[in-house]
Write a protein that binds this DNA or RNA. Structure first.
Lengths: 358, 358
DNA sequence: CTGTTAGCGCCTTCAG
DNA sequence: CTGAAGGCGCTAACAG
C-alpha cells in the first residue's frame, strides 16, 4: 500500500503538497498538481481512512440506527437503508449499521463518545425519544427521519411545542396530513363519500408514535375540510387477524363505506381476506388504498394495492445530504421537511359504484 | 475525550501499561490493573477506534455487501443484515453496508485497498463470481453467504470442481438439496404423490445462480430417491403474473398435482390467486409450501403459507464468527457449512385429499 | 511485571 | 505557491 509519502517522493514534492492536492484546500499550480496526480495514479494510491480520521477528526463514516426488524412497516426499511448507504457513498461517506442494541441509551452514548462516526441518522423516532435528547446534549451531527416523530409539528399540542422550540433539530418526515389529503381527495374524485381509515394500533398511538398520532389528528381535522358523509377512524393491531376483524366489523356496521385507507401493511392481507369472504369485489365493491407502503407489499396482494408510497429514496437523499452539510459545517439552515407520499394506482381502487345502479 | 495518556497519568502508570490492560496481551499485576481500570472508569475513557486502527492495523470493522434490493427474494435481506450487525457487535466489530455500487469490480478493489475494514461478507454470490476471484487475490478475509453459490458443492459438475479446489474459501449456505428433501418427505407423509416445484426463472438458472441451479439438480436426483408419481419442475419469473400463469398451467395440464413447492416469493401471490380462481381451496384441494422464505412473506397470504424458513440468524452468526476468526488469526479450519431450512407449518399444507372421497 | 519510544498515515499550522 | 515538522491516540517492540 502506497502511502502519501511514496506519492510525494515519486512526484518530487513534499507530503503536504500531496495532501493539499487531495483536499484542494489550498492553491496548487497546475503543473505540480498534474505530477502529483500522475504519481498517485501510478502507485495506485488511496488515502488511508483511519490515518485521515485520526489526523483530521473526520472519519467520513455515518451511522444509521435501524429499528428492530420485528415490528413496523418493515418492507421499506431495507430499501431505505440501502438508499442511505448509496447516497452517502456519493458524498464520500460510508454507512455503518446500528441495530436496536443501541436503543439502550448508555451504549448509544458510548458509541458516540468513541467518535467512530461523524454523524448519525435515526429511524423511527418517537415523540419523546430519549435518544434525541441524548444526542442533543452532545455536539455530534444527526438527523431524524421519517414517519416517526412529532418534532416541529405544527400541531398545537404539548408534545409538539416541546420539541419545536428546539430549532436545532434536523429532520425529514412524511407529510402525513398531506398524504392523507391526497388519499381523501382521490377518493372524493372517485365519488366516494364514506370512507374508513384503518390506522395502526391504539397502543402505538398512546406510545406517541408520530405517524399514528399525526394521521389520527389529521383525520379529525379532515372531517371539517371535506364533504364526506362518513369518515371513520379505526385503530388496528399489526396482524392479519386484526385487519380481518376490523374489516368485517366495518362491512357489517357501516355498510355505506366502500372505501378503505389502510396505514398498516401487516394488517392489509386480513383486510383483503375479509373483503373476499364477504363477497366484496375489489375495487368494484370496495376500494382499498394503502398508505405509506411499498411496491413489494402492494404486489403481494391481488389485485395489487393502490398505494401512497413511502418515498425512501428522496427521504434518504435529503437526510444524508443535510447530515453531511452539518458535518462539513456548510449549514444551510436546519432541515425541517415533510414529504407527501406519491400515489401509485394499481387496481384496488375505483369509482364508487353508483348507488342507483345497485 | 480522555485519551490513553490521561488514563495513564491518572493511574500513575505508563501508556503502554494502560494499553496492555486493555488488550490483555501481557500480564499485569492485579493492583495496577485495578488502578488503571478505576482511572478509565472515572475519566469515562474509550479507546479511539481510528487511532487504534492506525496503530494496530485492525479496524474492527466489517463490510456487508448486499445485493440490489430490486430482485431476489428480498424479504429476508433486512433480517439477515441486522443479524450480521448484531452478531458482529457482540464480538466488538461494527458493520458497514456496501450496496450494489460495489458490484463494480474496480470500486470493490479500491475499497479493499483502502483497508477501511478487516473483512467482508458477500451475499448473493454467483457461480462464477468475479468478486470472489478478486477477493481471493487479496489477502483480506471474507466469507460468502447464503443460498447463492456453488463453491464447494459436492455436485460433480464443472463449476463445482472449479471452486471446490479452492479450499481456502469460506462459506455458509442453505442446504438446498436437504431443504428440498424436507419438503418432499413432508409431502409424502401427507400422502401426496404428485407434486410440482416452482423454481425461479430460467434466466436466473442460466446465469448460474446457486439456489436455482442446486435445487434444480436436487429435484432431478430426487426423482430416483422418492416414490412420487409426478415430480415436475417449472421455471417461473419473479412476478405475480408468472406465478399465476404457471399455476393455471399446472392445474389444467397436471390435474393430479395437488402439492406445490414454491421457491419464488414474488410469484407466490400469483400462485395463490390462480388457485382461488380455479376454485381450489388451500390446503383442502392443493397444498402450498414456500421454500427459503420468511415469516413476513408467509403472513401476507391467506391462509398463511407453510414455509421452509431462511435461517437468517444462524447463517449470520456463523458467517460473522468465522470471519472474525479469520481476521484474528484463530483459524479453526475453513467454514464450509450448509443449513437446512426449518419447516414452519402455517396452514397452507394438508393431507392429500383421498382420491376415493372425491 | 512495567516503562520508553518509535512509528501507523495523514493533516495542518507555521514558515518560507 | 510549496516545505518542514508537530501532532492525532494508540500499539508493540525494545529495554529494564
Amino acid at each position: 500500500m502506497a502511502t502519501i509519502q511514496d506519492v510525494a517522493e515519486a512526484a518530487g514534492v513534499s507530503v503536504s503538497t500531496v495532501s493539499y492536492v487531495l483536499s484542494g484546500s489550498r492553491p496548487i499550480s497546475a503543473a505540480t498538481k498534474a505530477r502529483v496526480q500522475e504519481a498517485m495514479e501510478k502507485l495506485g494510491y488511496r488515502p488511508h481512512p483511519h490515518a485521515r480520521a485520526l489526523a483530521s477528526k473526520q472519519s467520513h463514516l455515518l451511522a444509521l440506527l435501524i429499528p428492530p426488524t420485528r415490528r413496523g412497516l418493515g418492507e421499506t426499511e431495507i430499501d431505505f437503508t440501502s438508499h442511505v448507504s448509496r447516497e452517502a457513498l456519493r458524498a464520500g461517506y460510508h454507512t455503518l449499521l446500528l441495530t436496536d442494541e443501541y436503543d439502550d441509551l448508555s451504549s448509544l452514548q458510548e458509541f458516540i463518545h468513541t467518535s467512530l462516526v461523524d454523524g448519525l441518522i435515526l429511524m423511527e423516532v418517537h415523540t419523546y425519544d430519549p435518544r434525541v435528547q441524548l444526542l442533543s446534549t452532545t455536539k455530534i451531527p444527526f438527523v431524524l427521519i421519517g414517519r416517526c416523530e412529532t418534532i416541529g409539528d405544527t400541531t398545537p399540542d404539548k408534545s409538539a411545542e416541546r420539541f419545536s422550540s428546539e430549532p436545532s433539530l434536523n429532520w425529514v418526515d412524511i407529510d402525513f396530513e398531506g398524504t392523507l389529503h391526497t388519499a381523501l381527495e382521490y377518493f372524493l374524485e372517485l365519488g366516494h363519500r364514506d370512507v374508513a381509515f384503518i390506522n395502526q394500533s391504539r397502543a402505538v398511538y398512546e406510545n406517541g408514535y408520530g405517524p399514528v398520532v399525526r394521521s389520527f389528528e389529521a383525520l379529525e381535522r379532515a372531517r371539517r375540510l371535506y364533504a364526506f358523509e362518513k369518515l371513520e377512524h379505526y385503530f388496528c393491531e399489526a396482524t392479519n387477524e386484526a385487519g380481518y376483524e376490523i374489516t368485517r366489523h366495518i362491512i357489517q356496521q357501516e355498510p355505506e363505506i366502500h372505501a378503505l385507507i389502510v396505514m398498516n401493511d401487516r394488517a392489509l392481507p386480513g383486510v383483503y381476506r375479509a373483503l373476499y369472504e364477504e363477497k366484496k369485489r375489489i375495487p368494484e365493491d370496495v376500494s382499498v388504498l394503502s398508505m405509506v407502503s411499498s411496491e413489494r407489499a402492494a404486489e403481494m396482494l391481488y389485485p395489487p394495492v393502490t398505494t401512497l408510497e413511502f418515498p425512501a429514496q428522496v427521504l434518504a437523499s435529503q437526510a444524508v445530504q443535510q447530515l453531511i452539510c452539518q458535518i462539513e459545517g456548510k449549514q444551510g439552515g436546519p432541515l425541517h421537511n415533510t414529504l407527501r407520499c406519491p400515489l401509485i394506482e394499481r387496481g384496488s381502487t375505483g369509482r364508487r359504484a353508483d348507488k342507483d345502479s345497485c
